[in-house]
Simulated assay, not measured.
Amino acid sequence: MNLEEVREYCLLLPGVTEDSPYGPDMIVFRIEGKIFLHMPLEYADQRISIKLPPEEGQRLRENYDAISAGYHLNKVHWNDVLIEHTFSADQIKNWILQSYNLVVSKLPKNLRLKYSDN
């Protein structure tokens, strides 16, 4: 996958918005105002930062050189994933969806119900 494919996939998810609150070199994707994916544009090696359950993120970081603790983010919850030529598109989409669903699960109940089919 590349950054444009990640962007297209994120925008297919219900309720997702994108913006650049940190400047033109960083795009974030949100659900109900809560960030579930950071997409830095300044790196030569394309990457995304996603939220995962702490134990899964730790396991992935231990098993894959292409996954590390989120740079400038909470290293318990956020994980940087190199996306080009590292993992299948389906695997990357699975992690993006997992991040999205993790953030949705923390929303107030009335908002969570809007996204319960994902």
Rank of each mutant, 00 (worst) to 15 (best):
M1Y: 01
E4G: 04
E5D: 14
L12N: 12
L12W: 02
P14N: 06
P14T: 01
G15F: 06
Y22L: 15
G23L: 11
P24S: 12
P24F: 08
P24R: 13
M26Y: 05
V28F: 08
F29A: 08
I31P: 10
G33V: 02
K34N: 14
L37P: 00
H38T: 08
E42R: 13
Y43P: 00
D45Q: 11
R47T: 10
S49A: 13
I50T: 10
K51Q: 14
L52V: 01
P53M: 01
P54W: 00
P54V: 04
R59G: 09
L60H: 04
R61T: 13
E62Q: 14
N63F: 00
N63W: 00
N63R: 13
A66P: 02
A69W: 02
A69F: 03
Y71H: 15
H72D: 03
K75Q: 11
K75W: 01
V76G: 00
V76E: 12
W78L: 06
W78T: 00
V81E: 05
V81D: 06
L82P: 00
I83V: 12
H85T: 08
F87C: 07
A89N: 11
D90M: 09
Q91T: 14
K93N: 12
W95L: 10
S99Y: 09
Y100P: 15
Y100M: 11
L102E: 04
V103Y: 02
V104Q: 08
P108R: 04
P108F: 10
K109P: 00
N110Y: 14
L111Y: 06
L113I: 13
L113S: 13
L113W: 02
Y115F: 14
N118R: 05
